[in-house]
């Protein structure tokens, strides 16, 4: 995975190296048949010209190299397009989620996609996801409600084969309900994506709220715990990770390896938590 960060193609075709020996070998071959009347320099020049002509007219060997080069470039361009498509996808997720456009949100998931928000548990498949989203409010945002979920600071890693990807995002949250103080929140998204039929979809979305506070009191005077699993519409699976938001200091595991050292940050020691018995 780390390799894809530093060089988009893990095994790039190196045309310079492939063509070099090829050209010189055909030049050598031609040189033997060249007229002996010319000076040595002319012979070499002629040989090079002939070699160039050969390279153009022998598709079997030389053209294959050009095709390989093109295929390699196409792969690299496609990985960049993939990354862009995923960045758009996640931004659009946020825009739809903000306004309670649950049908549009659910449509962004793959058929077996999963949705997990804090301690609410995991919902599977577009239909279940769309219903679970109603726990956040009706379809179309209700008046006096604010549901801003920002999608920021993305680190997207597309797999070398261009079929799957991961993304980590910073998620600042602004909430409001009628006749109540506003709320500030912040959290981390750790998502996976899959390309189905040429279109990128969300395979799994996992939002880890890390802090939520009463607007007027602020983070250092108010920490609001996460919502638990719904009794009304229970999830398909319990939360994949149990943790506390602020004042807890949970570190959502990183989908991407350290870009310089290559170290995995998937399995980090978590801060002590007396309730969980973690020292």
């Amino acid at each position: 995975m780390i390799r894809s960060l530093s060089s988009p193609t893990p095994t790039p075709v190196r045309p310079e190296l492939v063509e070099g020996p090829l050209c010189s070998s055909s030049a050598t071959k031609r040189e033997k048949n060249a007229p002996s009347t010319s000076s040595g320099r002319t012979v070499v020049k002629l040989a090079m010209l002939l070699a160039a002509a050969l390279a153009l007219t022998t598709p079997a060997i030389a053209q294959q190299t050009v095709e390989q080069r093109l295929a390699s470039y196409r792969e690299r361009v496609e990985r960049l397009e993939d990354q862009l498509a995923i960045e758009n996808l996640q931004a659009d997720f946020g825009y739809y989620f903000d306004k309670g456009l649950w049908n549009e949100v659910a449509a962004l998931f793959s058929r077996n996609g999963s949705f997990e928000y804090g301690m609410r548990g995991v919902y599977l498949g577009q239909d279940r996801i769309q219903r679970a989203l109603l726990l956040f409010g009706p379809q179309g945002l209700a008046p006096s409600h604010l549901n801003n979920h920002m999608q920021l600071q993305g680190v997207v890693i597309v797999a070398d084969d261009g079929r799957t990807a991961t993304g980590r995002w910073q998620g600042m949250v602004q909430l409001a309900e009628p006749n109540a103080n506003g709320m500030w929140g912040v959290g981390i998204y750790e998502n996976t994506y899959v390309k189905e039929g040429g279109t990128w979809k969300i395979a799994s979305l996992h939002f880890y709220p890390t802090a939520l506070t009463d607007y007027n009191a602020g983070f250092m005077r108010s920490t609001i715990p996460m919502e638990g699993q719904s009794a009304l519409f229970p999830p398909d699976r319990p939360p994949t990770e149990v943790y506390r938001s602020l004042p807890g200091n949970y570190i959502p595991p990183f989908s991407f390896d350290h870009p310089v050292t290559g170290q995995s940050l998937q399995d980090l020691p978590q801060p002590p938590d007396s309730v969980l018995g973690r020292k």
């Binding site: 659009d92 306004k99 449509a107 962004l108 179309g140 945002l141 209700a142 008046p143 409600h145 990128w200």
Partner: peptide
């Protein structure tokens, strides 16, 4: 509640 109109279609549908 106002949803600023989207110029772009849903990227999946």
């Amino acid at each position: 509640v106002q949803v600023p109109p989207f110029q772009q279609p849903n990227p999946v549908t």
